[in-house]
Design a protein around this nucleic acid. Structure first.
Lengths: 338, 338
DNA sequence: TTGAAAGCGCTAACAA
DNA sequence: TTGTTAGCGCTTTCAA
């Protein structure tokens, strides 16, 4: 890299002090037009760019917001995260913020990553996604009074700004829809139960089964890890039951797709021999004709960003707690039982 | 936020100077054990965390690498980017780096984003993905001598470290494979021709058609924008030809999936009425049984990161230019012509 | 073993 | 209109 051009460089080139140069470049009015002109020209000629770090140190803000994502693996790329990231990235960019991504596997390491971000003042605010019932990340952020928004609620009584979708009511609706098609043996592939949405969606299933009066068969609930592979394993167990289900609802699309793959491997025709539905409406769901509960992840990312920016600026939020209703999107993956 | 705990806080709490506190915490050996103990304990008790910005300013490095991504839209999330990001994020995290994401639409805005990152010393290095034949981003980075690696080559004679896949040879192979299955009317959905890989892959198609002796029908090449929607539009045009193709090869999986969707809409059976193949091997390709050329995007992301870290550290690269051979993965989406 | 002083590059309060 | 001084929080000579 060529030698750095700093304010000092311009100062000695023009004969003015560093302060004047700084003010001229910042467009302050208390600099004479001719000086401003000269300094501006020199800055351009020398290719001056302000050092972001120095400015951050002085201004006490980084124009960066943090996002801690789970470590992925070679074949794993949940469109859920990509869409969320796309929404956040686009909206933040529109407001002059960049996004700092830190990969960490859940666990103590993850909380440490939050601490480093917050205490080290590496970012101005952060977005927490996939909240847990008892979420130590949120407990920490609340306690520290650090600006953040979450996608999802918690179950520990903490007050904080969030957007969430009503997974219970959505799933309730979906299961009812299947029942109306004639299904009685409806199984469910649940998300890990430490995740808030995992519990909510499962509750929707259970409540629906109960209200419909279908026998609450414990065997019909399998918990899996939100991946396609996990969905395949869960579906295997469900379809191997002596009395297999005629419909499988999964807590997210990826697991539903796993069930679809497995059923196809077994030469079943989806929507006829087995009905399958998911949750999220990732792009592949449409491509594969998967019935699902649609939530506008991209827009949620944008809205979360707008909320966070307001928080950072110290503005009040007009709606600090948002609960969205997912929309049932019916596609060929479901039909009446055979 | 509670009042910041800095070195100064600890200094006055313990009675030592800021310098000594700094050295004790950094684990220097020229601090007496008892002092180090006291300072360490106090730091823990007070919840001290070093201010990242201040450290950056002093050390002249940010432990951050930059990634400028195209602005996405609501329904757009190319798994290609997610996988790349996952690979980069994971490998960088393993080496103590975080990733700064900046969203920008291609154009002057994008180059300005690079400038801001580089000249403002916001990051220690950067990764350029989806190179173009004449790539002003790369020209700029080379000229500035800023540490970077690229996924893809350029056509302007510049020397820089990269990883690329041999899209020409891969596509050549694939088209030959289709010809061996008996196809003669093979169409191609090309990527934008300012992208290096777009040109390479198209060349593979053209060379294969030529060597096989199949008539080089200009109508059989459609250019689209790498999205599923773009693929659908291109496929529409191709299938509406008086003499429609029996096979369609697309420059990426997303466009191939678009062709699949369209063909299904027209009640064609993929692999029988129409053969379709893509490039990339994104997760959905497997789920949908799409024949494709597989490139290990996640691992490439990791390897790119290792190269970049070496560059940042000033270590020599043992292999600055890597060309990978994509692997043909045959799945049910292709078959002999009807 | 410890501390004073300087400096990373910038902004801002205050003087002149 | 311009410059001096101080300081953001840290690291690093250099001297004691």
């Amino acid at each position: 890299m060529s030698p750095r051009v700093t304010l000092k460089t311009i100062a000695s080139a023009t004969g003015y002090s560093i302060t004047t140069v700084s003010r001229a470049l910042a467009g302050y009015q208390d600099v004479s037009p001719s000086t401003r002109q000269l300094i501006g020209d020199t800055a351009v000629k020398l290719g001056y760019f302000p050092n972001a770090t120095a400015r951050q140190l002085q201004k006490q803000r980084t124009d960066l917001i943090g996002l801690i994502l789970p470590s992925f693996g070679p074949r794993f790329a949940d469109p859920y995260f990509s869409l969320m990231l796309a929404g956040i990235g686009d909206e933040m960019a529109a407001h002059g913020y960049d996004v700092l991504i830190s990969s960490h596997s859940p666990g103590p390491d993850e909380l440490a990553a939050y601490r480093a971000l917050v205490e080290g003042r590496r970012v101005d605010g952060t977005v927490v996604i996939r909240t847990r019932l008892r979420d130590e990340r949120i407990a920490y952020l609340v306690e520290r009074g650090f600006p953040f928004v979450a996608f999802g609620r918690t179950d520990d009584g903490l007050a904080f700004p969030y957007i969430d979708e009503d997974g219970e009511s959505g799933t309730f609706q979906l299961v009812n829809h299947l029942a109306q098609l004639g299904h009685e043996r409806i199984a469910y592939i649940a998300a890990p139960q430490e995740l808030t949405f995992g519990v909510n969606r499962l509750r929707g299933y259970q409540r629906a089964m109960h209200e419909i009066g279908l026998s609450p068969n414990g065997d019909y609930v399998a918990v899996a890890d939100l991946t396609r592979t996990g969905g395949m394993a869960a579906a295997t167990r469900l379809l191997d039951l002596k009395v297999p289900p005629t419909a499988i609802v999964a807590a997210n699309d990826l697991m539903a797709l796993g069930a679809v793959t497995l059923a196809k491997d077994r030469k079943m025709v989806i929507g006829r021999d087995l009905s399958v539905a998911g949750f999220d409406d990732i792009p592949t769901a449409e491509a594969l004709g998967l019935t699902t509960l649609s939530q506008p992840i991209y827009s949620i990312g944008r809205k979360l960003s707008r909320m966070l920016i307001a928080l950072i600026r110290g503005e009040p939020l007009d709606e600090p707690k948002v609960l969205l209703q997912p929309r049932l999107v019916s596609r060929p993956s479901i039909g009446p039982p055979a």
